[in-house]
Amino acid sequence: MTAREGRGVYYEEATRQPPHDPLNLCIVATVAVLTWLIGPWAVTGFAVLGFVGYWRAWRKGLRRSKCWLRDTRLVLMYLAVLAAVGIVAALQT
């Protein structure tokens, strides 16, 4: 099997490192567009989704996050506040 027939992405040199894929930037842009279009309901939805994910991870033992806040409890509080603010804003519109 040659490199061109192989699995994955083809690179000209076998020893060359694959370029960095800025997938996170695409995800952030998509979330920003959805939030802009849907408004406070999107903020509430993403905050609740994040809270549920971090809650499950915390229950399984995650105590330090890659999030800027680092401490999982702080991340949970931040997401809970975002969800509450989103609900208040959505009900006022």
Rank of each mutant, 00 (worst) to 15 (best):
Y54F: 07
G39V: 03
T2A: 14
V85D: 10
W36C: 07
G39W: 03
I87G: 08
A83D: 12
M77K: 07
G6N: 10
V81P: 00
E5Q: 15
V81M: 11
C26D: 08
W41Q: 14
R7G: 06
L82W: 11
L62A: 12
K66V: 15
A84Q: 02
V31M: 14
Y10P: 00
A42E: 11
Y10G: 07
D71P: 00
T44P: 01
P40A: 15
M77S: 08
H20S: 12
V9T: 05
L37Q: 13
A3H: 09
P19N: 01
W36I: 09
I38S: 06
Y11L: 12
F51K: 02
E12R: 07
L69C: 11
A84I: 08
G39T: 02
M1K: 11
M1Y: 12
G45W: 05
V88P: 01
P22K: 01
E5G: 12
V88F: 03
V81R: 06
V31S: 13
A3D: 12
V48N: 03
P22S: 04
A14C: 00
Y54W: 02
L34P: 02
T44N: 02
A90D: 11
L49D: 10
E12K: 06
V28K: 10
L79S: 05
G53V: 12
R16T: 09
Y11N: 03
G8N: 00
T30I: 04
G86W: 02
L49Q: 11
G8F: 00
T2D: 15
R63M: 00
G50T: 13
L23M: 05
G53S: 12
G86V: 06
V31C: 12
V33T: 06
G61D: 05
Q92W: 10
G8L: 04
D21I: 14
A47Q: 02
V52D: 02
K66I: 13
A29S: 14
P19E: 02
V31D: 11
Q92H: 09
R59F: 02
L23T: 06
L23N: 02
G86Q: 05
V85H: 07
V31H: 10
W55M: 10
T35H: 08
G45T: 06
E12M: 00
A29G: 12
V31K: 10
P19K: 03
R56F: 05
T15L: 01
E13G: 04
L69M: 15
E5P: 00
K66F: 13
T35L: 12
R56H: 05
V43N: 09
C67T: 05
L69R: 15
P40N: 15
M77H: 06
T72C: 08
V31R: 12
I27C: 09
N24C: 11
I38T: 12
R59S: 00
C26M: 09
A83I: 14
W68V: 15
G50C: 13
A42C: 11
T44H: 00
F51R: 04
L34R: 11
R56D: 01
L49I: 09
L79M: 10
E12T: 07
V43G: 08
R59M: 03
W58D: 10
R56T: 07
Y54R: 04
P40S: 15
A14W: 04
L23C: 05
V75A: 08
L25Y: 04
L76M: 07
R70E: 05
I27Q: 08
L37A: 14
L79C: 07
T35P: 03
A32R: 10
V85A: 15
W36N: 05
N24K: 10
G39M: 00
R4G: 02
A29E: 11
G53A: 14
A57D: 13
L76D: 01
V48H: 05
